[in-house]
């Protein structure tokens, strides 16, 4: 059992251009000009991106104590352990987005999409790492879920922040209105279950069928 909050720094995860396009609101392949803009933005954002995660492992009993959320109960059913984590790609990207928000919205849009893709890729890398770390003991990482998803209320951000001490560990803060800053950040819970994977993953698993980003 881990009784400490762990902090991890990662190298840049592999880039998925299709995801970037999707977050930028493009359904088809990019033309030459847009591809050039994405390349330019990737190049420019690279030095400003950092990949940090902090996490803590709980007994599922500890998490479920007093929790009525269906989403949480379903997400952790059959799990003994769960990892609560927070991930961020850092404030540098927000500054870059703000810089172009004032002067070039096309670039701001693409940078924004890059940030969304980067932080999701970071979460994927982290969860795959959990699989590797616990795979030997016969555990696999289930699908992660975040406050604001299903009936898992956004107010739970506060609890996650106080449990993980996000400001100190990865420089992630919460505003009074419950927004995260840096904005390209994710907090989530992932259950660790023994046995074989059975569930659906990705957009297939999500009930929001009218989502703009649905694949």
């Amino acid at each position: 059992m881990l009784d400490k909050i762990f902090v991890k720094n990662y190298d840049a995860p592999p880039i998925d251009r299709r995801e970037i396009l999707r977050y930028a609101g493009c359904k088809d392949d990019a033309d030459e000009r847009l591809n050039a803009l994405i390349d330019e933005c990737l190049h420019e954002s690279e030095p400003f991106l950092s990949y940090r995660v902090c996490y803590y492992m709980f007994d599922v009993k500890q998490i479920l104590d007093g929790v009525t959320s269906q989403t949480v109960q379903r997400g952790l059913v059959g799990c003994e352990k769960a990892v609560v984590f927070a991930a961020t790609v850092g404030l540098g990207l927000d500054r870059l987005i703000a810089r172009y928000g004032a002067t070039n919205t096309a670039k701001a849009l693409v940078l924004q999409a890059i940030g969304a893709e980067r932080v999701e890729a970071l979460c994927d890398t982290f969860c795959q790492g959990l699989e590797r770390a616990y795979g030997e003991t016969g555990l696999y990482a289930r699908r992660r879920f975040s406050p604001g998803y299903g009936d898992f209320a956004l107010e739970n951000q506060k609890k996650i922040f106080s449990a993980l001490d996000c400001p100190k560990n990865i420089g992630l803060t919460l505003t009074e209105s419950g927004l995260m800053s840096p904005t390209k950040s994710v907090t989530a819970i992932v259950g660790l279950q023994s046995g074989k994977r059975q569930e659906k993953t990705g957009c297939e698993a999500c009930g929001k069928t009218d989502c703009f980003a649905r694949k």
Partner: peptide
């Protein structure tokens, strides 16, 4: 055309 294209034109 998609949003990035529209914005590039706007810029």
């Amino acid at each position: 055309a998609y949003l990035p294209g529209l914005l590039m034109s706007a810029e």
